[in-house]
């Protein structure tokens, strides 16, 4: 199988890569571009650990083909902090211990950011349903939900 050239924008940087037609965006990010922040927990869209933004929408990168991203804007966890300044969600997750093993954390942060951009003042129930596609096995979600709300309040005030 021959590879296909794809030109895209990742975290604001123009990026070109070659991939096979059947390669997922997740494989491209991890294996070809060295962006291993997105994790493969299932490869079938059931766990959310590979969450990234594509053209302003939250997607599982395991359910997107690399070739589909021609001309697209991709944002990953690696682009969430600006320089050495963490995004409020990242900082609050640390301050409030909203992670244990941390494997689901990149996906949850990307998903939570997408929610707050759409709905800056969600209820706990809205946060829980929005994040239902992001499995976490360590925390029982409690501290995650609280941290998203703390960050949301801070971002509304900012």
């Amino acid at each position: 199988m021959k590879t296909i050239p794809v030109a895209t924008t990742i975290n604001g940087d123009e990026t070109e890569f070659l991939c096979h037609a059947d390669e997922s965006l997740l494989d491209v990010l991890r294996d070809r571009l060295g962006l291993t922040g997105a994790k493969e927990g299932c490869g079938t869209g059931d766990c959310g650990a590979c969450s990234v933004m594509m053209n302003g929408r939250l997607v599982c990168s395991c359910l997107v083909l690399g070739v589909e991203t021609e001309g697209a804007e991709i944002e990953t966890i690696e682009g969430m902090a600006k320089g050495d300044t963490l995004h409020p969600l990242q900082r609050v997750f640390l301050e409030e211990a909203a992670l244990q093993c941390g494997i689901c954390t990149p996906g949850i942060l990307v998903a939570a950011k997408a929610l707050l951009e759409k709905n800056p003042d969600p209820t706990d129930t809205e946060v829980r349903y929005w994040l239902a596609g992001n499995l976490c096995r360590c925390t029982g979600y409690d501290k995650i939900i609280k941290a998203v709300q703390t960050a949301a309040a801070e971002m509304r005030g900012a």
Partner: peptide, 9 residues
């Protein structure tokens, strides 16, 4: 259908 992520697609 599916999660927030799946809804985007």
């Amino acid at each position: 259908i599916g999660s927030s992520q799946v809804q985007s697609r």
